[in-house]
């Protein structure tokens, strides 16, 4: 336990010095970058929400020596000498589709390539994989999606928090996170037909028909 960053909490610990948005911060050990930004009074840190790395808002560029990476500030702990810059909010996605317009699932692959024409252009640079704060093998998932393996591809995006870091890391502008969500959505939309739910819906439909026949029906 003493090896964990969280073990050190006392004020007696020496401060960890780092830079956030250009401002020098003396943080306590085991703080996350979000806590450190608040602690150090860094102004205008607006991209913060869930504080438990599921909302994907608090995206940062981090520099350790010559190495620059991306991550989520709420899951990154302070380190001596690192520099962090909070990134601006994500751009609006440019790919458009409405799932209600999908009718024939035999055409899903064709529709996919119409909606995401870039998905088959992957140049295998691994930028998306490096950028993912959730450790998703984004590149493999995109290649699965491009081959029509929507369910498997979607499953790989289970932990995706839509931070869109892979989108900004993709030189072909594939928008991998949105491809992943597309895969999950079409899989549910076309494949999820649970008997227990359908049975209950059917019972409710019959009840409503009966209810309509009687004068005191509601709904």
């Amino acid at each position: 336990m003493t090896s964990t960053p969280a073990a050190a909490t006392g004020d007696s610990q020496p401060a960890v010095n780092l830079t956030i948005n250009g401002i020098a911060v003396a943080a306590r050990p085991a703080m996350t970058l979000v806590e450190a930004a608040w602690h150090g009074g860094v102004p205008r840190v607006t991209g913060v929400s869930c504080l438990e790395s599921v909302c994907g808002s608090c995206r940062v560029l981090l520099r350790r020596g010559k190495e620059v990476t991306v991550d989520l500030a709420c899951q990154t702990f302070v380190e001596e000498g690192i520099e962090a810059v909070f990134l601006p909010p994500q751009a609006t996605p440019k790919h458009h589709y409405e799932i209600s317009e999908f009718t024939d699932s035999w055409n899903n692959l064709a529709r996919f390539h119409e909606i995401f024409p870039e998905a088959s252009h992957c140049r295998h640079c691994h930028g998306c994989v490096r950028s993912c704060p959730k450790g998703i093998d984004v590149e493999s998932a995109i290649n699965l999606a491009a081959a029509g393996h929507f369910r498997d591809a979607g499953e790989m995006f289970l932990e995706c928090v839509m931070c869109d870091l892979c989108d900004s890391a993709c030189p072909e502008q594939i928008a991998p996170a949105h491809v992943g969500l597309f895969c999950r959505r079409v899989s549910a939309h076309f494949r999820l037909r649970p008997p227990n739910l359908i049975q209950r819906l059917e019972e409710q439909r019959k009840e409503r028909l009966l209810g309509q026949a009687s004068p005191d029906s509601h709904e």
Binding site: L61, V68, T69, V70, L87, P88, A91, R123, C125, H126, G127, R130, S131, L165, S168, A169, C170, P171, E172
Partner: peptide, 16 residues
């Protein structure tokens, strides 16, 4: 080219 997040995310962010 996409290999380095610093370059791709950096330039894309600066461009936006």
């Amino acid at each position: 080219c996409g290999q380095c997040n610093s370059c791709k995310v950096g330039t894309a962010t600066m461009s936006r």
